[in-house]
Design a protein around this nucleic acid. Structure first.
Lengths: 251, 251
DNA sequence: TCGAAAAGTTTGTCCTAACATTCGGTCAAA
DNA sequence: TTTGACCGAATGTTAGGACAAACTTTTCGA
């Protein structure tokens, strides 16, 4: 007698009139059940057909919902065997959002001090990374991010100037990504590189650490939904206060 | 006059008798076309229906192929508009593989020096991370990874002992993941955290750097296809020789 | 008793068929 | 000149069915 878990006990009520796709509603419902413990780590789910029938959905829709959770690392599947909840508590996937957004979600109160803001001609390296022609102009920002008064990150960004109007005051109280999204930009992907190095005297002073302390470095290029390279950033974080968490998924 | 690109010029011949799924064959074909430049960065693809017809596939299959490329960051889609090749050259996604595998693919010749190998009782922290009961035993490895004779990484791993038999000689010439895969383990996901710190005298000596140099740190837990936590690792890399590249995708 | 074959279960792939939603542009009305 | 309605085009969602492949369990024969 298998201990398969149906979803009936979860009260997964889906709203067919909602603009939220059914598969996403289902995925969110199951995710909530896993995170709240109603679906125990390691427990086996009913098969796709039974679950679909239980929710009055087609199998493709049910499967797409489960795909979402497999991709985010909450479920694992094996052909001929079934689908299980992953044993360990999986943190949320590394999101394509700015640090500012990350910290807001986690309930902290980040502030931003703008050290430099200018509208300048892009040098060759920036032109290349943003795929701009020669003579193009960009916004250049250097910001210090603080969390509850404590310096956390030093961020230098170059933003193409033909997608939004930036000004210094707005950026003080809103994250860069928030401002750009409000301007109608839909970020789709970012390529980034994470590494480390020791800090110099200038950085040590701003971040409030000893010269020679370790820094986490992050270089990023962000792309929107029509393939434009919107922004490149070079950020350094205090290694004692920041690290990157992510879940890698195969297949 | 749109400059939409069909795929006919690409000679995408798909083999319906192959065990490789059609959508994956198509995805690989398009990826190859992009990476080779036959599909120019920024160019717009034909619509899904036309492409499907061109390859004698159904639209869902075509769509699934494109999904793969969207998820890996090579294409971007926008409803009502179309699908484009991303402007920038996207590196391969951060894979769930060991460093050893990574370097092999890139054509380098990594070697491994085993500093310590033992079969020991798991302490409480390891028991917890691998979800083992008290009294469980694990393999414990400390390895130094060298690339062309140059030290690159210092790696400490704990592996549960009920899934494979490990021995010191095999691990010298094969990567840990390779050995575990050969034992029938299908890795599905890994949760990892990347950070930085400065190195101590012991690490400096082994890695051939000055004490106080920057290190990239990586902590990882790997999970297989039936939800078992197989291995936890704590690795440190020379910051001047290693960094993590990845592509984040929204949606 | 043990190993091989068969049957059953479950996920994986592929197809056809609609309809919905969003975007970009055109064109007419204010 | 600007606004609004409409239309075509493209991606997004949902359904239902059929078969394939991998794995587990049971059954059967030596």
């Amino acid at each position: 007698m298998p201990s398969n878990k149906g979803l009936s006990s979860l009260r997964l009520d889906i709203d067919r009139s909602s603009p939220v796709p059914l598969y996403h509603q289902v995925a969110q419902g199951i995710e909530a059940a896993i995170r709240s413990g109603k679906l125990a780590p390691g427990s086996k789910l009913d098969n796709e057909i039974a679950l679909a029938a239980e929710l009055n959905l087609s199998r493709p829709t049910m499967r797409k919902a489960m795909d979402e959770l497999v991709r985010s690392g909450l479920l694992v599947r094996k052909r001929g065997v079934g689908t299980q909840v992953v044993a360990s508590q999986v943190k949320r996937h590394l999101e394509l959002s700015s640090l500012f957004d990350d910290l807001q979600v986690s309930g902290k109160k980040p502030t931003s001090r703008i050290l430099s803001f200018s509208h300048i001609a892009a040098d060759e390296a920036v032109q290349d990374m943003l795929h701009l022609g020669s003579g193009a102009r960009v916004y250049h920002l250097v910001r210090l991010r603080l969390m509850e008064g404590k310096p956390l990150a030093l961020m230098e960004n170059w933003v193409r100037d033909d997608v939004a109007d930036l000004d210094e005051r707005t950026l003080t109280e809103r994250g860069l990504y928030e401002v750009l999204r409000a301007a109608g930009i839909n970020f789709r992907l970012a390529q980034q590189r994470i590494g480390a190095r020791t800090c110099n005297d200038y950085e040590a002073d701003l971040l409030g650490v000893q010269p020679g302390s370790a820094l986490v470095t992050m270089d990023r290029t962000a792309v929107d939904d029509i393939g434009r390279n919107i922004e490149v950033g070079h950020h350094v974080y205090r290694a004692d206060s920041y690290s990157f968490e992510m879940t890698l998924v195969n297949r």
